[in-house]
Design a protein around this nucleic acid. Structure first.
Length: 492
RNA sequence: GACCCCAUCGUCCAAUGGUAAGGACACCGGCCUUUCACGCCGGCAAUACGGGUUCGAUCCCCGUUGGGGUCGCCA
């Protein structure tokens, strides 16, 4: 059987280095076996999925050098490759499960589920899920309520006892009691399938042989193998990759580390270096060499050689590796080309110049004023971020809220940034000027700088957000507790 | 809290049922050099703990501890 692997990103945010990590191993494994690598967009979350995010993911994967044989942009024999275009397929399969008695309609409201869950947590019950209230409704009654227009979801019937045993290629046998698993929703009230249903149906229909994905999915495997059983299908090989981590060992997150591929691109990393670095997370060349290409990898890669300790994503070592690529593989003329591609092109220079033009007295002033547009980070001190009559902790809150608001901006431009900042200022009952003062420090690394909103527009969202996060860390950062409190207070 | 996964220098990755436990990043020293960087040489630094199995365990088994993940009509 031909080896087929897939990457199944969900277009709900920035292209993540973890996605690239999984893409790399999936791609390489397919190519080791002369097989195919498929890109499938998992946009079953109507609320959060955006076309912009999908486009950004494809674009950044291309930049880093991952290609796919089938996907939403190139098509292929197993399409469509976007889950929102496969709704009728899921519907058919969901109906099949209901008919066979493996799934049922559930009319419980979110409010009821919340209450049930809260109560279970208060009671310190070991299982905190759904109480299966609708599991034994008669099909007739269910049909009646559906006909009456009552909203409902479809849940799968998980066995009430016994245990599920499955195999992970890297970890061997894993067992889990069925009793510890909820009756998982497989179709939401909006008629869209959930991940669990869609992923199983698609992986089967697309003849995926190896599921290579992050370790956070291990606990869902029982639900998936049960679905395979319900449908009478053969499950694929499961291979759960270790999770990339922050230096503090938690799962890699943008709050503690830049996670957007676009950040690394804007900060001037070479795609081949980033990919190489990801390749040494959990894997190594047989001869121990640390600099290797995807082609090198394909020559000696075996999935079962992956080590399981979740690696820390160490930006210092990535920087070193990137440096090796720059100085070992590039002539000055190559670098000149790359710099032009990166930022020293007429377009970017024009945009930067527009921001500083009115301040120039000599052409050479340009270099002085624009350094921040060609840097990764800027030098920030507490003093630069200080606001008169304001506690440090308040400044951090201010920055955090700004960050959250900025993350939601769709069209990153001066006007939208300006209106966001005005919003934040109003929320805190501050003059805009007061809010922008620490932002000048965070974004520009100086109190003297070109106009903030325009600068931020030119700099781009990835660099701006990374700089704001860095500034918050200079001030001591936010504890998880405080963050949650803040989130409750302000975040919608 | 329940369940699942994991455990070699600070970090990444090696190694073997018998080793002086190896390489890389970082750090420290030295050489090179107009400075810095690169390069070169050297140094610091790890088998989490407790029980087994064994002539012998870092490696195999069990427990403890520690870390991570999952417990959504998110993926």
């Amino acid at each position: 059987m031909k080896v087929r692997t897939r990457l199944a990103p969900s277009p709900t945010g920035d292209p993540h280095v973890g996605t690239a990590y999984q893409a790399l191993f999936g791609y390489v494994w397919a190519k080791v076996n002369g097989g195919e690598f498929v890109l499938r967009i998992e946009d079953t979350d109507q609320e959060r999925s955006t076309e912009a995010s999908e486009a950004a993911i494809l674009e950044s994967l291309k930049w880093i050098g991952i290609t796919w044989d089938e996907g939403p942009d190139v098509g292929g024999p197993y399409g469509p490759y976007r889950q929102s275009d496969r709704l009728d397929i899921y519907k058919k399969h969901i109906d099949m499960l209901i008919q066979k008695g493996h799934a049922y309609s559930c009319f419980c409201t979110k409010e009821r589920l919340d209450t049930v869950r809260k109560k279970l947590i208060e009671e310190k019950a070991p299982n905190r899920g759904y109480d299966r209230k609708c599991r034994d409704l008669s099909p007739n009654e269910a049909a009646k309520r559906i006909a009456a227009g009552e909203p409902y979801v479809v849940r799968m019937k998980i066995p009430l006892e016994g245990e599920c045993l499955f195999n992970d290629l890297l970890r061997g046998e894993i067992r889990k009691d069925w009793a510890s698993i909820d009756d998982q929703v497989i179709m939401k009230a909006d008629g869209f399938p959930t991940y669990h249903l869609a992923v199983v149906v698609d992986d089967h229909l697309m003849e995926i042989t190896h599921i290579i994905r992050g370790e956070e999915w291990i606990n869902s495997v029982p639900k998936h193998v049960l679905l395979y059983q319900f449908f009478g299908w053969e499950p694929p090989v499961y291979c759960h990759l270790p999770l990339l981590r922050n230096p503090d060992k938690s799962k890699l997150s943008k709050r503690k580390n830049p996670t957007s591929i676009n950040y690394y691109r804007k900060a001037g990393y070479l795609p081949e270096a980033l990919l190489n670095y990801l390749g040494m997370m959990g894997w190594h060349m047989p001869d121990g060499s640390e600099k290797f290409s995807v082609q090198d990898m394909i020559k000696s890669f075996d999935l079962t050689d992956i080590s399981l300790g979740s690696p820390v994503f160490d930006r210092t070592k990535l920087r070193w590796l990137n440096g090796r690529y720059i100085r070992e593989d590039n002539s000055v003329s190559d670098l000149t080309d790359k710099l032009q591609e990166w930022a020293l092109n007429p377009d970017y220079i024009a945009r930067v110049t527009a921001v500083v033009a009115s301040r120039l007295e000599t052409l050479s002033d340009w270099g002085y004023f624009t350094a921040m547009f060609f840097s990764d980070s800027v030098p920030v001190t507490e003093g630069l971020l200080a606001v008169k009559d304001m506690e440090k902790s308040q400044v951090i809150e201010l920055l955090q809220l700004t960050l959250w608001k900025l993350e939601k901006v769709r069209d990153w431009n001066s006007a939208s940034i300006s209106s966001i900042l005005k919003e934040v200022a109003e929320l805190f009952e501050l003059k805009l000027k007061v809010l922008t003062s620490p932002l000048y420090g965070a974004i520009c690394g100086s109190k003297v700088a070109p106009p903030l909103f325009d600068s931020m527009e030119v700099l781009g969202s990835d660099l701006c957000r990374t700089r704001i996060t860095a500034a918050m860390n200079v001030l001591g950062g936010l504890s998880g507790k405080k963050l949650k409190k803040l989130e409750k207070k302000y975040r919608t």
